[in-house]
Design a protein around this nucleic acid. Structure first.
Lengths: 198, 198
DNA sequence: AGAGGAAGTGGACAGGTTGTCCGCTTGCCT
DNA sequence: AGGCAAGCGGACAACCTGTCCACTTCCTCT
């Protein structure tokens, strides 16, 4: 690729995202620092810490992210969108084609894998009451509602109840405070999935 | 009752609780102010606010309660202990005698009633990650574990999963953001209780 | 290529919160 | 009644948040 093409591509990208080159660089520095900080220090980091760890001023950080949870949400989004894609158009049992119960169970397994891999991020993404305000929660919710409907029922409240055990804070408690294994947690959720018909 | 007897009773009480009279009065003022503040302002109140609303100095407040959640927990304890008593020795279906599924469903109903009545307090009692550190959670957990065992299984993780939908924050979301009725929430939990045998 | 303008940047500021400390006050026991 | 210990409240330092503004950097257009 010629350097001219590179420049053109970067220009395209910049105009598409309406973001200047230095701004994009800082965004990367912020996200990288956040990923490191969340892993090292846990979910309790302040905007001040994050800014200085990223080597940017506080106002620069605030320009993009209103609070720490937004940064965590942005970091999680990458992994979540991948999962969401598989739920919509991937192969069964997660994708369409399997029974509601099977699909719910596959969803549980995938979410637990996600939590296991990115727990600090998931915890950071819901400081305060932001859990349900997140776009991701709406997606999971719509998915489970459709499974319940496919099973011949109509019960939004049941969807919320079925999603409740996926709260990151609960998973942290089960794994760290109670010493439960990943298999034990997945097994319990598999039992829960039995509220939907095979 | 003679005033002498009153004095003696107060002395007994004071020595039993190892708390001086003025201290007891301040505790009452703090609890009363907290109950009012939680109801008026929601769960987001600071120790500073609480102290000034109670008309005591900050250090006085800190002497008894390390943070706001402790105050909320103390206020909830009264109602929770009443429920716990009924679970241990009350009449079926909440008390012993009914099937595990029935008892779980009765427990769900009672907890939802509690949440409905004291939601601001319940929300205030778990700012941060304190939900599972609470003594109350351990009690609910032991109860559900015993139900599961009575149903012939052994699955602690399932107990945690079954308790997850009782998170105050979820209930707030269901009622306020989603407009679900108390009956709808209870109905969904009743379905969830079907993971235990009749 | 370079100049103008807009987007981006970082340091500073005010307001608020937390947890602790210490000198004074108050209640209780003898 | 007096002494002692527990209780009290104001003050303090450290921190965090969200915003503002003067300066810098990048992009675009000629």
């Amino acid at each position: 690729m010629s350097s001219y093409a590179v420049v053109m591509a970067e220009n395209l990208l910049a105009s598409a995202s309406a973001e200047r080159a230095d701004a994009a660089a800082n965004r990367q520095r912020i996200l990288a620092a956040a990923e490191r900080l969340f892993a090292e220090r846990g979910p309790q980091i302040s905007m001040t810490e994050l800014a200085s760890a990223a080597g940017v001023g506080r106002a620069t950080l605030y320009r993009r992210y209103p609070d720490v949870t937004s940064v965590a949400v942005a970091l999680l989004d990458v992994h979540e969108q991948q999962l969401q894609q598989q739920m919509i158009s991937g192969p069964p049992p997660l994708g369409p084609g399997a029974s509601p119960r099977r699909r719910l169970q596959a969803f549980y397994d995938a979410m637990i894998d996600l939590l296991e891999q990115h727990l600090p991020l998931a915890l950071g993404a819901e400081q305060g009451a932001t859990r349900f305000a997140t776009g991701a929660y709406g997606f999971w919710r719509t998915f489970v509602i459709s499974l319940i409907r496919a099973a011949g029922r109509q019960d939004d409240a049941l969807a919320d109840a079925l999603l409740a055990p996926l709260a990151p804070e609960l998973y942290r408690y089960q794994r760290q405070d109670r010493g439960q294994t990943v298999s034990q947690v997945k097994g319990a959720l598999a039992r829960l999935a039995h509220v939907l018909p095979e």
